[in-house]
Design a binder for these strands. Structure first.
Lengths: 330, 330
DNA sequence: ATGAAAGCGCTAACAC
DNA sequence: GTGTTAGCGCTTTCAT
């Protein structure tokens, strides 16, 4: 392990001067600089980022907390975030919480202790009070969850409730009366908001919510398939199902195919997110666009402004409206 | 920012004792321990991981370098890696190189400077000599690339050449004579190895390789679609196309549909990887299974053994054979 | 244009 | 059972 002290000694200068040729923060005589650069090359010196971060009180790192990396929605979000960060010299560090509440909390705590410069929360469980303590201690968050609304935290949202209303209204317009929904544990916030929209749209149409028509699918394809089976094995089964994400909708399609049901003739299915697979399945999935890349990028931009002290005010709110995408499954 | 010194002062003990109640590395009187724990709680003290890492010379972090996080193959790999690491108290930190050679090199350098305990390389460009210097300086790598074969580096491989041979032989058995291939820049290693297998299988059948039947698709869906168009707009177009990954195969299917070609009647298509989307598209994609999750998990296990000094010997080689998956597209 | 020295927050000899 | 002290490798005041 070669350190800045080794370089300094070999070049016959002080650590200070070596540090300054590295950072360029103060002029160094051309001859000295060259000599130092040569020694750095010879010794293969690489500054220790840990030491630097400890001293400078910044890491150039941002953590992205997300529930499921294998749900294509999140990689796309990560891409957007990364695109905003990399060109500014920051790195994103992905934490996959596996949809687990404890792991989510543990990852946030870990990121804070690792002194990341900022945290982007695309979380399922965390609520405002869970992050409040961190914020008081100076942590910088950007929220991608409507469950975290804090006066000092920037937030990107896309009105999940409205998206659910759009989808449900469409089903109603098609003449469906018995409409099921596949969501998730109500503790998981995006699901509960989409459920709220679903219920609102039913109310508009004077249809009362029937909780035997709600099933939990954990936001995964397999979970969606199971939930669909539960819904369809009921005596008076729904003629249409709104799923809180595309992955569950694809799972629901799996089950429908297995049961020999035609989509959308026997049962209509609508998803949420518009991941790439939505236009790959057959029939193509009708869904609600939830622009992951743009959200990630916006999150990165807001975060950087704060991290660099360019913005210090109250929490901003970037709103990206959902859009209904009519395809073939409904 | 509350430090261990603050806790020590307030509890009326030395930093050492506080440190030891944190780590449990030496007995502390029950009364003292309780008092300290209470102060930690009161002050909301969280140890600074940077300082700890600097001192302990380990970070409990592993970097995963990968080309494209939006290619579902890699999230699955990341999942496997994470599953191997998390339960052992390590964290994985994902670096998306965007398929760019410079970025790949930059990320590796960055991970090294950040003092990650180990690096898993699922890279496209890096070759043995590129990592050799790091290894000499004590860095620990696991290679998921057949381009990195180093006597001190553990490697997970699945014989891309053999996989390509399986796919190509199948097309030949189906009677195809003009078979195209969609790959990528030959600098990108997995593509060149799969090309090698492709050529070998043709040779076996005494068919000479026609380089107008090879097109580059950059491992993306859009790139695959473009490459397919190039192949199919030729006068004497192929009746079957082998694609170096599923994403490009799906792109090729997009183009075939656009051109009004039926799959597999007018043109047969085979992919590589068996990502989830392969069984989602219509017709379902015939492909070669490249078990991402298992590879990630194996990588994590090998890496941890080295990181913890449980294994110090020469580079091991875990071999996961490819498997041909017959579906509908060929 | 350059250096000496303090210190970021922690751990671990080495005392007692 | 507990404390003193010396660093981990770097940046940055304050001098000269």
């Amino acid at each position: 392990m070669v350190t800045i002290a080794d370089v300094a000694e070999r070049a016959g200068v002080s650590k200070t001067t070596v540090s300054h040729v590295l950072s360029g923060k103060r002029p160094v005589a051309a001859a000295t600089r060259e000599r130092i650069e040569q020694v750095i090359e010879e010794l293969g010196f690489r500054p220790n980022a840990l030491a630097r971060s400890l001293r400078m009180q910044r890491t150039q790192m941002v953590a992205l907390i997300l529930p499921d990396i294998t749900n294509p929605y999140y990689p796309m979000l990560a891409r957007g975030l990364q695109d905003a960060l990399v060109e500014e010299g920051y790195h994103a560090f992905l934490c996959n919480t596996d949809g687990d509440k404890e792991q989510e909390a543990a990852f946030i705590a870990d990121a804070v202790q690792r002194k990341v410069d900022g945290i982007v929360l695309a979380s399922l469980y965390s609520r405002t009070q869970d992050v409040d303590e961190y914020i008081k201690n100076g942590a910088i968050f950007v929220s991608l969850s409507s469950a975290i609304v804090h006066p000092e935290v920037d937030r990107i949202s896309s009105d999940n409730e409205q998206g659910a209303i759009l989808a449900t209204r469409y089903l109603l317009e098609c003449g469906h009366q018995r409409i099921g929904m596949i969501g998730s544990s109500l503790e998981q916030h995006p699901s509960s908001t989409r459920l709220k929209g679903f219920r609102k749209a039913l109310e508009e149409a004077s249809i009362s919510f029937d909780d035997t028509l709600f099933a939990q699918g954990d936001f995964t394809r397999a979970g969606g398939a199971r939930a669909m089976r539960k819904l369809m094995e009921q005596p008076d089964r729904p003629t249409a199902v709104f799923c809180a994400n595309d992955l569950m909708a694809i799972g629901a399609m799996d089950t429908a195919h297995e049961l020999g049901l035609r989509i959308p003739e026997n049962v209509a299915i609508i998803g949420y997110d518009d991941i790439e697979a939505a236009s790959l399945v057959s029939p193509k999935l009708t869904t609600v666009l939830n622009p992951a890349y743009e959200k990630g990028k916006a999150a990165g931009q807001l975060l950087l402004e704060r991290v660099r002290g360019k913005y210090k005010g109250p929490g901003r709110h970037v709103f990206i409206p959902p859009r209904f995408i009519k395809r073939e499954s409904a």
